[in-house]
Amino acid sequence: MTRPVALRAVLSAGVSLHGARIQDVDLGPYEADLLAREDLAGLVVLGGEVSDRLAHHLRLHGALVFPTDPTCPVNPYRATLYRPEELYDGMLDRGYASTPDALAYAWSREADQAHDVFVTLVRAIHDDSVSDALTEVLDGRRVVGVMGGHALLRGTPEYASAARLGHLLARAGDVVLTGGGPGAMEAANLGALAPDVPALDAALEALAAVPSFRPDVQAWAALALEVREGLLDEGPVRSVGVPTWFYGHEPPNVFGQGVAKYFSNALREDALLSRCTAGLVVLPGAAGTVQEIFQAVTPLYYAAEGVPVPPLVLVDETHWERTIPVLPALRALGAQRGLGASTHVVGTVEEAAALLAG
């Protein structure tokens, strides 16, 4: 995809635009140069700002110009991850229901659009664009996934433990990747973002004032945005969330430095789990967490002999052995495969972080 700097360089060098892709760029500053060009066959322009005059010229000379859906509350051709402030824009003035996050969920659920082929195309382009942006952010980094239940309350020892895990992983140089929602996911993203232990402790104490996103998402998110302002958000990315509008009842947490939010939960799950190349830590959870465990296990189970398998670390043996008996299945699957040697059960998040030390 062509970004503004690259586009300027291409135009200045006189390089052919045949087959080029221009994504989410305001073409106003480049209009005169593009109007002077006729080598445009195969050029694809995805969204951005394009005047009617320029769009006509591009199409006349063989380019494809993809419009957006004016009813879509978010930009389907975006070239970067979301920022938390972007998803919650306008909340303090008009309420959560008016935010891009809430409006995107409502748009995705409109019954009269369920079988609209153009809406389906727009959603698919959006999710593919988000995947590209996520790949760009994580390129060359050690990525550890942290999974866990959305119902975990702020102010509890379990929430603080998940936050410590995120902090330990990030201090070791890993990017902490979560499902981007509330509960254990929020805690791990928070811990990864916090610059030091005192800052993390202060954030945990402050957040306890609003334990859950139920019944008031606005109070939950507003407090988190306020706490986030007191945390350093500089240097390499270390905290990323990957939520989905499929679970519209779960608002995204604000402690990811980038948010890769998807319309398709299936694409979101694959985007999340396939990028946890340095390992996966699973905290206690329920159905959604169990689904993620087995989705992660499948490619590990079928990995070719001799291919390194990233560690899968489950925290709290009692939960995974008795409360939700996942461990017996994992042990059976891993008995004669590399998965078995890479599956670990630990009692504390400190043990989990130590196992994943790079």
Rank of each mutant, 00 (worst) to 15 (best):
G148H: 05
D69L: 08
G248Q: 04
S16A: 12
L92N: 14
W107G: 01
V50G: 09
A6D: 15
F294K: 12
L11G: 09
V175K: 08
L138D: 04
K261A: 07
L35M: 15
P67V: 06
L46W: 15
Q295R: 15
R78D: 06
T244K: 06
L54Y: 02
L64H: 15
G155E: 13
R94G: 00
G338V: 10
A341R: 15
C72R: 10
T343N: 07
R3Y: 12
G47H: 08
T318W: 13
V197G: 09
E305L: 08
V242A: 09
L103E: 01
D26R: 15
A303S: 14
V44G: 01
G285E: 06
R337L: 01
A163K: 08
G258S: 10
R238D: 07
V349A: 02
S12I: 07
M1W: 13
L87K: 04
G306R: 14
E226H: 13
V74Y: 05
L17D: 07
L34T: 03
W220F: 15
L17T: 02
R337E: 03
D196F: 09
R123V: 04
G258F: 13
G47F: 01
I125V: 15
P251Q: 00
R228A: 01
E292G: 08
N75D: 10
I324H: 05
V122W: 09
A188R: 11
T80E: 15
P284T: 01
H56D: 15
V119N: 05
A41V: 13
L355E: 01
T289M: 06
G14I: 08
V143P: 06
T156Q: 10
D216Q: 08
V281N: 04
E269S: 04
W107E: 02
D316L: 11
F246W: 14
L138V: 11
A271G: 00
S98T: 03
I22E: 02
R154S: 00
D127W: 03
S239F: 02
A55T: 06
H126Q: 04
G48M: 05
S98N: 03
A260S: 09
V309S: 02
L121F: 14
F66P: 04
E250N: 07
M147S: 02
R228G: 03
N189Q: 12
Y96L: 08
G347I: 10
E229A: 14
H249R: 08
R322P: 04
G181E: 02
E229K: 12
A278Q: 02
T343C: 01
L190S: 00
D201V: 07
L177Q: 01
G155P: 11
A352H: 10
F255Y: 12
L283T: 01
R37K: 11
R59L: 06
N253C: 13
V326M: 00
P198D: 04
S239W: 07
R142E: 04
A341Y: 07
L43R: 08
E234D: 15
V240I: 12
N265V: 00
M185D: 02
P299E: 07
R142P: 11
A188C: 08
W220A: 00
L355C: 01
R337T: 10
Y77D: 10
R142F: 01
V137T: 09
A151R: 14
D93W: 02
L232C: 07
T99V: 09
T323S: 09
S264A: 13
S239L: 01
R275P: 01
